[in-house]
Design a protein around this nucleic acid. Structure first.
Lengths: 161, 161
DNA sequence: CAACTTTACATCGTATGCGAACTATTCGTT
DNA sequence: AACGAATAGTTCGCATACGATGTAAAGTTG
């Protein structure tokens, strides 16, 4: 959609811009990762594990910003691919500990190099990016605190009672 | 993930921030729309149709920023819900023309009111939002032009040949 | 007019995201 | 020791996103 269109308030436009930017990034990563089986969420997880060391699924959920119910199947696929290992914590069997494997480290190194190479050619303005990150962080914090009223089916249909 | 973590270059951080902001917005809309069956992509489509009048699927794809192969099933669901109508163009039977129904207009009005109400409570800084939109637009344009090299399976596995 | 190319849309297969509900384990209270 | 609450993770069902492929219709060329 051209930016001539007005989706309503400024927030709606902001949302739509974030929607398009997110998918532009998704496509960029999809192109870089090609047919390797790697995806952006998997890449994020590998990075988090590389920096933090082994984590429980809940900890990983928190650091990677991915829901538990998204992580469970995702981590199972990654484990069967061989980039990480899942193990029940013997001290607390509710927990599963996720550890990067050697193959995972190798894959991450290669992925990081490919991504960095692609980003180097983008030519983004570092000052704009830094400011944008800060502003987006503000917006995200406020959105997560919001408690908007729910639309009902009756209201959607224009029925008043 | 806390922003202490460094995903690598500034671009990677930017991507992760966009990823989280997009999902924060998605959740916000999901909360507002509740069990009505409405979703953010459907909301965008209704808005585009409301402002542009009837469009072909390709035109809608372009204005809503949604791929044709995502739109086809989406529009079928929306048509069976009753908010829009699909009709083959008699002049060019390759094309399907999408038209908002009266029910669609009513639903969109209600949705816009609910969304605006939720946004009104957010308290975002208008100047930050405007700048952010501009910067994100720049980034999106560059990402869409990028032609990054693809990672191969061999490179992922650390094999040199 | 036939053959080929292009365009528009649809389907397939697989990916993720998330609300809801479920199962298993641990912790706290009585 | 028994029971309920809380925690951790899993599964279900449905949503979207998109590369690849397929079908049908229109346009172009010789």
């Amino acid at each position: 959609m051209s930016d001539d269109h007005d989706l309503g308030p400024l927030e709606a436009h902001y949302c739509f811009t974030a929607y398009k930017l997110n998918r532009a990034f998704a496509r960029f990563y999809q192109t870089v990762f090609g047919d390797t089986g790697l995806t952006y969420p998997k890449y994020v997880i590998l990075n988090v594990l590389s920096e933090s060391g082994p984590l429980s699924i809940s900890q990983l959920s928190e650091r990677a910003g991915v829901e538990n119910n998204t992580l469970s199947p995702l981590l199972k696929r990654m484990a069967s691919f061989g980039v990480l290992a899942r193990e029940r914590d013997p001290d607390d069997e509710r927990r599963v500990v996720i550890t990067l494997t050697e193959m995972g480290r190798t894959a991450l190194d290669a992925a990081r190099t490919a991504v960095a190479s692609g980003f180097a050619e983008l030519g983004l303005d570092p000052e704009e990016v830094k400011r944008s990150i800060t502003y987006m962080g503000h917006a995200q914090a406020k959105l997560e605190k919001a408690k908007p009223a729910k639309l009902t089916m009756a209201a959607l249909m224009g029925k008043t009672d």
